[in-house]
Nucleic acid binder design. Structure first.
Length: 396
RNA sequence: GGGUAGUUGGCGGAGUGGUCAAUCGCAGCUGACUGUAAAUCAGCCGACUUCGGUCUUCGGGGGUUCGAAUCCCUCACUGCCCA
């Protein structure tokens, strides 16, 4: 048990405050209340969030109480950058919708029956100015503007709204209401997490411990973020999920093993050494990683299938067993039109480009003329389009 | 309240009367190569096209001009500085 806790306290962890206290409490057998806040602005949870969720899962398995907060209030207030936001009422609907999908996604890792679920509008919406002032008094302006990301923005001359300054108060007050013992979050959440401690003190509670987890890079090596479009989403289909993992740089393999799986640390360091010595092909390590990650969200069988699909179709460049069929109403169709029709090109221009660049082939033979007319003699043929597109044509 | 700068393609960011469908970087796409949907290299990267061209884009609207992302007016939004 002690060893397990030690791993829990270090694996993927950037910093714990206060570590000694947390360790003591975890060992004591006490049932802790673990808080995790989720911002409902985007409907998809990605693997970056899963780093934290996996930690929650560990805690849940150790018997602690998970308290999930949907930040619907903060969500409705909205992001300053989000100028075109719908009216609050509408946003509330969206939040409602997102909330459901969140529960579903979190359920892939957590036993939701045992999770306490809240929305922070339950209490934040009722706060009075008087109360907010009391909270705001717990912090100084200097503290705020010296936060790394705020300071950076101020230096760059980008706008920082007063509302943003209030954010940590809201998040911190959540901890007060829920009497959190431990809160988890990314390293970027440092200030907000610590605000919880500050406010709990202000309200006469024992301050929560705080665990900060490393942020992971997305498929392109930059920080994983919805706005970059480099995320691996928990709801991605098995083939997509496995493929996205395969498409990331080799240097992320170990980090992902550590943060996004629960493959034992011994095994992870074996893999790391194997790659360093050149005994283990990074491709194989990555494939194993990809399968493991896919397994977590889609189960053993789907993960295996996705792996096989990858090997067959991508590595060996074979045509997959099952190819989506597209039925043509007319007796013939232009090649470029077929690409658009089958969803393999978003416009005729793009279709032409793909064809002219040699991206389309049938029976190993490249088709280079976008104007080419496909007639009934192509009935049942499988087109390979680009790196991983396949489409079978059918005529009525 | 005063001053000042700005609003460009998915993002960042050039361009300041024609040669601008708009340099470049990122992301994306295609190909080559490869131990990988990694890396590297090359090309592409608004839409439509009978491949000759055509059409719609540079915050919104109006105007000047043979011609505007570039000049003028106006509206909207935003940054920064001073108070």
């Amino acid at each position: 048990m002690e060893q397990k806790i030690e791993e829990f306290l270090t694996r993927g962890v950037s910093e714990v405050i206060d570590k000694d206290n947390l360790k003591k409490r975890l060992l004591s057998g006490e049932r802790l209340r673990i808080k995790l806040g989720i911002d409902p602005t985007s409907p998809n949870l990605h693997l970056g969030r899963a780093v934290t969720l996996l930690k929650m899962k560990d805690l849940q398995e150790m018997g602690h109480q998970i308290v999930l907060i949907i930040g619907d209030f903060t969500g409705v207030i909205g992001d300053t950058s989000d100028k075109e936001s719908e009216r609050p009422m509408l946003v509330e609907d969206v939040v409602e919708e997102n909330l459901k999908t969140y529960a579903k996604q979190a359920g892939k890792l957590l036993d939701m029956d045992k999770v306490e679920l809240h929305r922070n509008s339950e209490w934040l919406g009722k706060l009075t100015y008087k109360e907010i002032t009391r909270q705001a008094n717990a912090f100084s302006v200097a503290e705020f503007i010296h936060r790394e990301n705020i300071k950076k923005r101020l230096d760059e001359g980008t706008r920082v709204s007063l509302r943003e300054v209030l954010y940590p108060l809201m998040q911190g007050y959540d901890s007060v209401v829920l009497k959190a013992d431990l809160e988890l979050g990314g390293t970027d959440q440092r200030f907000n997490l610590l605000a919880g401690r500050e406010l709990q003190r202000e309200y006469g509670q024992q301050p929560q411990d705080v665990m900060m987890l490393n942020l992971i890079e997305g498929t392109d090596g930059r920080k994983m973020s919805s706005s970059w479009g480099n995320t691996i989403n928990l709801l991605d289909e098995p083939n997509t999920m496995l493929g996205k993992v395969m498409s990331m740089g080799d240097e992320l393999i170990v980090k992902y093993f550590v943060h996004c799986t629960r493959v034992s640390m011994e095994k992870v360091s074996e893999i790391e050494k194997g790659m360093e010595k050149g005994e283990l092909n990074p491709r194989d390590a990555k494939l194993e990683l990809a399968e493991e990650i896919t397994r977590i969200y889609h189960g053993e069988e789907n993960a295996k299938e996705a792996r096989e699909y990858f090997i067959r179709t991508i590595s060996k460049k074979e045509t997959p067993k099952e190819v989506a069929e597209f039925e043509i109403e007319k007796s013939e169709i232009k090649l470029a039109e077929f690409l658009v029709f089958s969803g393999n090109a978003s416009s005729m221009s793009e279709a032409r480009r793909k064809i002219e660049q040699g991206g389309v082939s049938v029976d190993e033979e490249k088709l280079l003329d976008p104007q080419m007319i496909l007639g009934k003699d192509f009935d049942g043929k499988v087109f390979k389009i680009g790196k991983f597109g396949f489409a079978k044509i059918r005529f009525k």
